[in-house]
Amino acid sequence: MRILQVISTFYPALAFGGPVKVAYNICMELTRRGHDVEVFTTNAYDQTRNFEPISREQIINGFKVTYFNNKLRFSNLFISSEMITTLCKRFREFDVIHTHFGRQTYDIVVSLCSRKYTIPYILQAHGSLPRIGSWRRLKWFYDVLFGYRVLRNASRVIALSHVEADQYRRMGVPEEKIAIVPNGIDLSEYANLPSQGAFKKKFGIPEDKKVILYLGRIHRIKGIDLLIKAYAYLIEKVGNKDAVLVIAGPDDGYLNDAKALAYSLRVSDSVMFVGPLYGKDKLAAYVDSDIYVLPSRYEIWGLTILEAYACGKPVIASNVGGPKDLVLDNETGLLFETGNFRELAERIMHLLNDENKCVEMGKKARKLVEQKYSIENVVKRLENIYSEVTA
């Protein structure tokens, strides 16, 4: 099957978070299964910069990627006239188109070309449906003009969870077009983990210190302020000084505020902002952590939860969206009421004081990700959807 994946940002633009990694893994697994996969994307590198690829067209792990010049951007809206032109010219070459994110100019083109040439397309929003944030009025305007139509014209829409499925329904997508397919991870990346202590040694963390880890975009919606407040509460009210808080990830507009908060709460000496971590460095951070925390105010999935699971680590997460489904409370981790930093502090303290519980949860977490969230299982479900819409 000839499959086109259309996504605004792609490898090596890992600063844009989980969807980039998810799309990359999907392409790799589809290629491994014998499909002819191609990717159309832009050369956006992070929130402010573009990059110059060695070649506009590249073969990566057996699939072709075309990087189009990103001419203009508004927040997470990327505009490439070259991509739009090429989509129109080459649309008929593919059996199915899988478009990612939604509310992009290429989604409009895909929808129009799909109707013209009767070639099906799949749309996967990756949690982008709610009109939240500073651009919510622009999102409403886009939805009224194009968005509702783009969603309804799709042969299928991919929801990561029941929460996102409800969001599609509220946008007017018929029930029979909604398919719930979780994100998965490539477990082969976790077969040979870095040795214990490598991360601590690199960043000067004493061996006897425990590590509370957050890894992801530095954005207020991720609840980083709640985590810093919970950590300060642990030190001041409970007197726990045995752990350091490591916050890793690219700045998405909140880094300075987070550092200022840590300073104002007098915990800046033990809150470490280590910047983005990729590859072996990211795995080393998971390996040396005792607990992974995802305190998001809004989170449709939570790929880092699966990454922590793959490294055998328990997770503490807010009981919202995807994390509420991914974290089996008291089995693979603990949940806390979204926004309640005192409850978060209590959950952290509970696990820090029970090393055996952490180990037990970590083993269950690893088993869960192997059984339900491997990339092989996820892509098999996507394959079935592609076959259904092209039949």
Score class of each variant (00 low, 15 high):
128 S>G: 07
317 A>P: 09
95 D>R: 00
116 K>F: 14
52 E>I: 15
327 V>L: 06
140 W>L: 13
219 H>A: 14
209 K>W: 03
321 G>F: 03
239 G>F: 08
221 I>T: 11
138 L>S: 07
157 V>S: 06
223 G>T: 08
261 L>H: 00
387 S>H: 12
357 K>C: 10
385 I>Q: 07
331 E>I: 15
270 S>L: 00
260 A>Q: 13
31 T>G: 07
212 I>L: 13
118 T>N: 15
22 V>R: 01
113 C>Q: 02
248 A>F: 05
47 Q>Y: 12
33 R>F: 04
294 L>P: 05
25 N>E: 14
49 R>F: 03
60 I>H: 09
80 S>C: 11
363 K>R: 14
131 R>I: 11
225 D>F: 08
106 Y>A: 07
132 I>W: 06
374 S>Q: 01
29 E>A: 01
49 R>N: 10
277 L>Q: 05
289 S>G: 11
250 P>M: 05
264 S>I: 10
158 I>R: 01
115 R>V: 12
95 D>V: 00
273 F>L: 07
336 F>V: 10
11 Y>L: 11
211 V>M: 06
90 R>Q: 14
322 G>E: 09
284 A>I: 08
52 E>M: 08
86 T>K: 08
57 E>I: 14
126 H>L: 12
7 I>Q: 04
220 R>D: 11
219 H>E: 13
318 S>L: 02
365 A>F: 04
327 V>K: 05
128 S>M: 14
145 L>I: 15
266 R>T: 05
7 I>H: 04
106 Y>G: 06
18 G>P: 06
68 F>D: 09
230 A>F: 06
223 G>A: 06
149 R>S: 15
255 L>N: 07
223 G>C: 04
